[in-house]
Nucleic acid binder design. Structure first.
Lengths: 343, 343
DNA sequence: CTGAAAGCGCTTACAG
DNA sequence: CTGAAAGCGCTTACAG
């Protein structure tokens, strides 16, 4: 058994490998780095030596000389939101595929924690950073990173678009689809429920809503800002259920709010899609679990993650490349929570 | 503006700091490491020098000599499951508090990918590893890590319990509560829906169910294994809705299955809690969104993450410490999906 | 509290 | 393709 003496064994070095294989250390180094300069026979014997003595490449030492760590950092504002888990999976897929490792940090929407992380990541010598800025992050945050010469890509939210690469979603396509469908169904009193978070995606969604409403010649009945939690959204729906002349249709900043309102209306005996229409945003898996299903706007977190990682790798490779901004389209997904307006 | 020449500036070294402050490099090093050996005045002047020239501590170089990286690795099988996001937040909280950074890797339940990650983490010189083993991981996986002398803690699932520290959940408390409540309500035909995943938490849940059933003198009506997806669970519920003598109550391996069955039964016009009883596992936030709410067994992902990180830090500090196994209690949470058995 | 020396494990030119 | 030398930026004893 163990647990008695799990003492860390001294790791063999490249010198040990070289000695074992009867070559110089430089040659062994070339083999490790898969250089084509080494002959097949030599390579085989070095690799055999490595296997035999249990050699482990020391990336830290290599990086110190080579001035790169084969490491990137990712800063995520909210790990409890499944949306970010999926985004992370997309990033990981590309970064891992390129042979790099990912540091993760969880800002909990705190710009202060975020500042600390950035310093730590820099001390660890990350080759680049993907950041989804915490709510309330100042543009100064990104400037500091670029002053350092740190390759940076913003994802989902931006405070420095135009200065660094950015991959966000195009809110307008999905929002237009949602509003157009509501208008088609005869709704003219349409409300928007936004979240009290200060970040670009929030502002863009609200702006996209207003633009779509204007395009269809409808005035927004009401815009309400709440904490983006199930509980707050349920409370709002219960209140609205008893309100005279409340909107006949609601668009919500995200599915957390949409699902909460769905439950709140249902608790009051109102059926979404019949008594009022309800649309969320993000199209998370749970929209299919409630009855009737919650219509939503689909965004592509995996694709956004993949693109962000690709842009970062490019930026690391080519620091002087043009700043690039990518917007991943969104589209409306209809479900039972949407129906015709009632007289 | 930038985007033109974000060339990485050469970082100042400790030698630069020492020169600037008029001290030796060793003294500067002591200041960086917050050693008490340095006088207040000297410290102040060194710190001023660091600030002035924009010094950034090079953790890679420091770690090479000190033989520790102030870095740990975490291997997670499924980032799309919000449960793991929350677990990660718990881990991060402790690790970050201790001043270490976290590498994350996403195995997607693949033991093969997992092997690759472990090698890479080792090359990066992580000080320790928290692993939630992918389904199907062989015990050999953990043995290899301990052979290397790598500090390891298993979380949520174990293939090497007794050999390394492990923090899991105690399935039995919550399961007993769930089964006891069903029996109380007069149910005698109780089914269990398990997931086709091969890992310890899966086996434990099934065993806990059987034990609770035996304790109450009930024979399981049926045990069914499915893909743990909403779709499969919905399909199963629809099938069961039309089955003569189907169980009057169901316990599910997790909330993904529970929520899927909830929707499936509802689609057939059956109301959980009235026409049959339904209990999930994990108590995710979404259990409160469906109507009636899905009863579930609450486990504590944050606490499990916190404990796992604490055990790892201890193990790194004290490699020879006794192997420790911790089980975080679970408890039954009743909601509307549970009701009296009908004649 | 400080200085000079050696070394952590690798890569980078540079000469063969 | 190979070898000997220097250096990446820090920490660790060790003598003052």
């Amino acid at each position: 058994m163990m647990g008695e003496k799990p003492v860390r064994k001294p790791r063999p070095t490249l010198m040990d490998v070289a000695r074992k294989a009867g070559v110089s250390r430089a040659t062994a180094s070339l083999v490790v780095r898969k250089s084509p300069l080494v002959g097949a026979e030599t390579r085989a014997s070095v690799e055999a030596a490595m296997a035999e003595i249990g050699y482990v490449y020391n990336l830290g030492a290599a990086g110190m000389r080579a001035a790169r760590s084969r490491t990137i950092g990712v800063i995520i504002p909210n790990l409890s939101n499944p949306f970010f888990g999926v985004l992370l999976a997309g990033i990981d897929q590309v970064v891992d595929g390129a042979g790099l490792a990912t540091f993760i940090a969880h800002s909990s929407e705190s710009a202060g924690k975020q500042d600390g992380f950035v310093t730590r990541m820099r001390e660890h010598g990350v080759d680049g950073l993907i950041v989804c800025p915490a709510a309330g992050t100042a543009p100064r945050f990104i400037e500091r990173l670029t002053d350092w010469g740190m390759p940076v890509v913003e994802a989902l939210r931006t405070v420095g678009a135009g200065v660094v690469d950015y991959v966000g979603m195009d809110q307008s396509g999905g929002m237009e689809g949602a509003v157009a469908r509501l208008v088609d169904l005869g709704h003219s009193r349409i409300g928007f429920v936004t979240a009290n978070l200060n970040h670009s995606a929030h502002d863009e969604r609200l702006a996209a809503f207003r633009a779509a409403m204007a395009r269809h010649g409808v005035a927004s009945a009401i815009e309400i800002e709440i904490d983006p939690t199930h509980g707050e959204a349920m409370a709002l729906a219960r209140q609205m259920a008893g309100t005279q002349d409340a909107p006949t249709a609601w668009v919500c900043h995200n599915d957390v709010i949409g699902l909460g309102m769905h439950r709140g209306f249902s608790d009051c005996g109102l059926v979404p899609g019949r008594d009022m229409s309800l649309i969320g945003f993000d199209n998370v898996a749970e929209t299919d679990l409630v009855r009737p299903g919650l219509a939503s706007v689909a965004t592509e977190p995996v694709e956004i993650g993949v693109l962000a990682a690709q842009l970062l790798l490019r930026r690391i490779e080519t620091p002087e490349a043009e700043v690039e901004i990518r917007r991943v389209p969104s589209h409306f997904v209809e479900r039972g929570s949407v129906g015709a307006a009632r007289g």
